[in-house]
């Protein structure tokens, strides 16, 4: 498989502390990789190390087309979009052209090449506006247009949707997906939101404490977490130890698939006894937290009728909704090495 951007034995060390260590990563031209991780896992550090941005102490190789690349080569190949859209003073149009201008392209040529990207991201009509007057969503669209206008061979996205409201984010994700589908660009998206990974990337890596714990097709990774940390990251937040389930190994389930009942009604599946801790009505349903010997389990369901704090209940999960985890919390990436991401749709 051809690799556009990747790394080998990449380590980032700050004041003697290793923040990140990635053995091997490859993203093919036209493919998108989502790096999913909790806050402080080293996601942005990985992204910046891949572009050799910032002042981190980085060792190991960043690979461009399979060969070790120096910062200058990376600078030409990469465009990055950060979490906050950092726009310059001036009009939207001037901002969209800023990336090309920084690369030494003439003013007229920059304007001509960047204009279609403003249109593609739905902000073409804002061309004459002062960039400081844009909403967060509009500004991030301009920042994306600015990055795409340089025709990057590698696009690095550092949680670009994090500060946006749900509707704006969904719209922007759809538009960006449509734009990226027609490009030869290798994209790396860093996020803590699994829905963004599902929307944009065919492959997903789970990054926990500076290490890639799991890597593979997004649908598989999000639904078959390798260990407890990965499970929590992808929404399998109810982790059940053998002592509670009576089965070998750790098990995990999503709150959406856990049901609270005053009586066991499942024929097959898991059942854990506990007492209701609290009931939280949410927009689409009710969250019931149940204290069990395994800790507090969260159950998301249509209603909490007849329940009250302190009541003895049974938390039940269907067999098909339970996932088995590796018990070793420090297990390495589950997929064979080298970890690589291909263009698969």
């Amino acid at each position: 498989m051809t690799s556009r951007i990747g790394c080998q034995d990449l380590r980032v060390t700050v004041r003697g502390r290793e923040l990140l260590h990635v053995d091997r990563l490859d993203v093919a031209p036209g493919a998108a990789l989502a790096v999913l991780g909790p806050n402080g896992a080293g996601k942005s550090t990985l992204l910046r190390a891949l572009a050799r941005l910032g002042r981190y102490g980085v060792t190991g190789d960043v690979l461009l087309d399979g060969h070790p690349a120096d910062p200058r080569e990376l600078r030409r190949a990469v465009a990055a979009v950060l979490q906050r859209p950092i726009l310059r003073r001036g009009t939207v149009r001037a901002n969209a052209a800023a990336g090309l201008r920084l690369r030494g392209v003439g003013r007229a040529e920059s304007a001509r090449r960047s204009a279609p990207w403003l249109d593609a991201l739905g902000v073409g009509h804002l061309g004459d506006r002062d960039a400081r007057t844009l909403s967060g969503g509009e500004a991030q669209r301009v920042a994306l247009a600015r990055a795409l206008a340089v025709s990057p061979r590698v696009l690095l996205l550092d949680e670009p949707f994090a500060g946006l409201d749900a509707t704006t984010r969904t719209d922007l994700l759809a538009d960006l997906r449509a734009v990226l589908d027609g490009l030869d660009t290798a994209t790396v998206l860093v996020t803590h939101d699994r829905h963004e990974a599902r929307a944009l990337a065919a492959e997903t890596a789970l990054l926990v404490a500076g290490r890639i714990r799991q890597l593979g097709p997004t649908a598989h990774v999000l639904d078959h977490p390798a260990d407890a940390a990965c499970a929590r990251l992808v929404g399998y937040s109810n982790v059940l130890p053998p002592a509670v389930t009576g089965r070998p190994g750790l098990l995990a389930a999503r709150p959406e698939t856990c049901r609270v009942s005053t009586d066991r009604y499942l024929v097959s599946g898991l059942a854990v006894r506990g007492t209701v801790r609290r009931i939280v009505p949410l927009g689409g349903g009710t969250r019931v937290d149940v204290d069990t010997p395994a800790g507090t389990l969260a159950c998301l369901g249509p209603g909490g009728d007849g329940l009250e704090p302190g009541r003895a209940v049974v938390v039940t999960v269907a067999e098909t909704d339970v996932r088995a985890l590796e018990t070793d919390d420090l297990a390495p990436a589950t997929r064979g090495d080298p970890a690589s991401v291909g263009r698969s749709g």
Partner: peptide
Amino acid sequence: VDPDFMVQMQGLGAGRLRALAA
């Protein structure tokens, strides 16, 4: 100026000097 301004300019292809000028 935003602390990530230089990083963003470099992330768009600017060298250190050009990012500083920006």
